[in-house]
Design a protein around this nucleic acid. Sequence first.
RNA 1: GCCGGAGUAGCUCAGUUGGUUAGAGCGGGCGUUUCAUACGCGCUAGGUCGGGGGUUCGACUCCCUCCUCCGGCACCA
Length: 649
Amino acid sequence: MARRFYVTTPIYYVNGVPHLGTAYTTIVADALRRYHLLCGDDTRMLTGTDEHGLKIEREAVAKGISPQVFVDDMSGRFRAAWPELSIEPSDFIRTTEPRHTALVQELWRRVEANGDLYLGEYEDWYCVGCESFKTEKELLPGNLCPLHARPVERLKEKTYFFRLAKYQEPLLRHYEEHPEFIAPEGRRNEVLSFVRGELRDLSVSRTSFTWGIPAPGNPKHVLYVWFDALANYWTALGGEGAPLGCYWPPEGYALHLVGKDILRFHTVYWPAFLLSAKIPLPSRVFAHGFLTIDGQKMSKSLRNAVDPLRLARELGADVLRYQLLRAIAFGQDGDFDHSALLARYNADLGKNVGNLLSRTLGLCGKVTGGKTPAFGAPTQLETDFIEEYTRRVGASRAHWEALEPHRALEEAIGLSSAANQYIDRAAPWAAAKADSPERVGTILATLLEALRGLSVLLWPALPNKMAQMRVQLGITPLAPAVGVDLWPMRFEPRAAGEALAASGPLFPTFDKDAEQALLAKLAPRVDSEKPNVPVVQAAPGTVSYEQFAALDLRVGVVKTCERVVRKDKLLKLTVDLGEPEPRSIVAGLALTFAPEDLLGKRVLVVANLASREFGKGLVSHGMILATGPSEALRLASVPDDVPVGSRLK
RNA sequence: GCCGGAGUAGCUCAGUUGGUUAGAGCGGGCGUUUCAUACGCGCUAGGUCGGGGGUUCGACUCCCUCCUCCGGCACCA
């Protein structure tokens, strides 16, 4: 009853290096891979890199190298990173590989043959500086490019469209018939409501850059990001009729792990492409949450500050894997907290599992000469413990099946706790003093078998540590094979007389000093960039939106400006706010600015401030915004091309 | 604005189709053992289960409403 299990991670865009977020997804995928291996499933895991697109082209140019050289280097970093985290994908695909490009083009042709591609015009905001389109959302107020702060323009580009709208009903039907297709539940509902709304055809090609896969039959176009990238899950298996095709439905079970930010692409666009190409859909798309780090959002600077490889080198890959799998409810947002990591390591692994191994082997060394004792007549204690063992081993398995690694591991630790309870109740040291070797043997044999089971249950998360544990237990390394179920569902104590090989603490704990030292070493240091604004909560002096909105802030241009006699600080100016007549404003700018400095300048004005009388008929109808000491003011400003009278918001 | 999720012990969270004294882990407190990595085991938290109202013999669990947080969509004051 070996299943064919195929798990994928997103392919990572090579404009960055592996960070904790990408490591997280990939570690979960690897843990699932290992779990399925243990079950005897025919298992396959895929990860890789996404290497096309304008950003890459641009970055390579900026570095003065060819895109290919650039992506070779970047992709290599991802490929090299995973083994350091004990991640062993079956395959690593790059979107620049011929095996991918050829099959993506085939996919394109199939979609085209199905009548789902048409040439049209894509119209949106375009920044000449970027040479790329911007969505409305990206733009700064006043239709400015967020990168260049210059106005974008409306532009049209020839592009192929995919008839996404056509697949609204088929998609909804598929969601309906396969409720497990999108998980978790909450995410499924989001997608559902999105698809129930209006689906617009999707632009799937570009002509404004060349670093991509040429569209078959029209090489002026390159395939646009999603059509190219999503296909990797399928192209990596070699396409239709290839030997690896058996990992794809209907024969295989294909699971895509994705971040919740790219859920839609995987549950709407990708299935639609496949429906069009008449290829079976993947079995399930599971969206996990985002990580915060020590309670802080993973900003760019934090991303780089928390390097999973550095953590792995410092603590061992297993410890990092364990924390990510155990501390974060898969599917929900989670926090990666450094001190919680150390605390959990000490508690779960050191004190619970590690000490259990240590005391068991210690007793064996003293009482049985470092060999496995015989399992004799069980008492109620053994019967109860074995019952709990069986229950937890089964529960752990069920949780892996349900994509709940945090719970699967919780069960494993619970089993270790139960063994610690059992050893206290059974008190083999007392039995040894009472000179009842058979009883001691039975107790120790029970514990050794529990530890053997643990070495399997924890292996998906802690492959290296569990390998070491098995060495100490004197058993062979786990050697998963297709069709062989290694999950320790049955409690079967070993034969007597086998050699054990205790060799000291498996999980040496950190004392307070060591913890402090590690935290100091590992904690992300980003304070320089953001002076750790601790509380940005609503302070007593906050204003409501309504209060804020009551302000009329406008862009104006200074038309006239003159000193005010006997008022050294004041300038009297008239400012054009786009109103019929320029406003007369009195402002305390004179210590910094000479009147001629300000002529023609753009300024920001509070336009609905109550008028103020300065005497001698001098009245100010507004306030000019500035910052700094009186003698070194800086005017709040906007670029010169912002129309006069524009309101700020 | 619409839709969805969440708000349970100091922290992280479980809580099945409503029913005796609301749970776990960690932390804290107390006790205890000595085989063990100063480890383990036992006991302990008296928490208005976000607020208010309702249904019911009885609600954390059902309904209404309000507040806060988060997410999706819409919109951009």
